[in-house]
Design a binder for these strands. Structure first.
Lengths: 149, 149
DNA sequence: TGTTAATGGTTAATTGTCGAAACTATTTTA
DNA sequence: TAAAATAGTTTCGACAATTAACCATTAACA
């Protein structure tokens, strides 16, 4: 077995273990967020993700649509709902009057703080069984993944 | 700073880098699967996930509903569609006639083989820039995550 | 400079998916 | 044997997503 064959076997192995791990993990997180977001704050998980993106600086309908890979009208409607809920505000950019800037309100920020705080607690609790080395390896792995995205 | 404070800082760090990495990564995968599943095979990503679960042994409506955390009627309807598409078959378990066993048809299996093959190729290509050590660390991390789920 | 194209966003109409409630059928339990 | 629990489906209402058409603004260019 030559070098490249061996390394491609490793790759394949990584991909396979990925499929056994990521989907259930993501699902757990999804379920947890839903519990907090829906039951405590009465917003859907999708709305949570929109708020999350706005908080991270995606401040227009187009940017959100691109980030979430759904249509602009769909975003526009969700934004409508979140505006009426008082969680975000629209404001027109004087530099480019086509651009409608989106920002979290104080309420929106407070809600996100609460959900993130809660989720972080939960995730920390979930990861607690791991050893310090495993935590370290996990962090490094994610750093290297982030690098290639 | 005592021992437990330091380790909880590490945990928090892991959680934070997680949030910067996972959602965009998952989105990329989602987009890729959609490209293959929708454009080549004309099924939705959600349908793909149902087929994936069936393939992995979740062979009843209830098991799928539990695994995906959505209602049984929703699953039942999706299953309906996939049956009419000829991708899965329902069969009644003679041992327990309430239980409707779900199985992929030859077509369904072929479709999943194709999507998985394609996706694996794509993921391997995506992970290729990583060094052998990084791949190794990634695999280990996912093994340890799998352990605690 | 004035027309055209591109960008950013919304509205309207349609489709599709999900969930709750109600139902049938089967099996388990008391 | 009657009641309860389990497995699945059907119906119906609510919500979310898409496409097409639209308005406003800015950029491109002939």
């Amino acid at each position: 077995m030559d070098e490249s064959t061996r390394s491609s076997e490793k790759l394949r192995q990584a991909v396979d273990v990925f499929w056994e791990t990521f989907p259930p993990l993501w699902r757990m997180i999804h379920v947890h967020i839903r519990e907090v977001a829906v039951e405590q704050f009465n917003i859907t998980v999708e709305q949570f993700h929109i708020l999350r993106h706005i908080r991270r600086g995606r401040d227009s309908v187009s940017a959100l649509a691109e980030a979430k890979d759904i249509s602009r009208p769909a975003i526009s409607q969700s934004v409508d709902l979140l505006v009426t809920r008082g969680l975000i505000v629209r404001s027109i950019d004087p530099q480019d009057r086509r651009h409608v800037k989106l920002d979290l309100t104080a309420d929106g920020n407070a809600l996100m703080d609460a959900i993130f705080g809660d989720t972080r607690q939960w995730m920390m609790k979930t990861l607690e069984p791991l050893s310090a080395d495993e935590i370290q390896a996990l962090t490094c792995s994610m750093e290297s993944l982030k690098k290639i995205l």
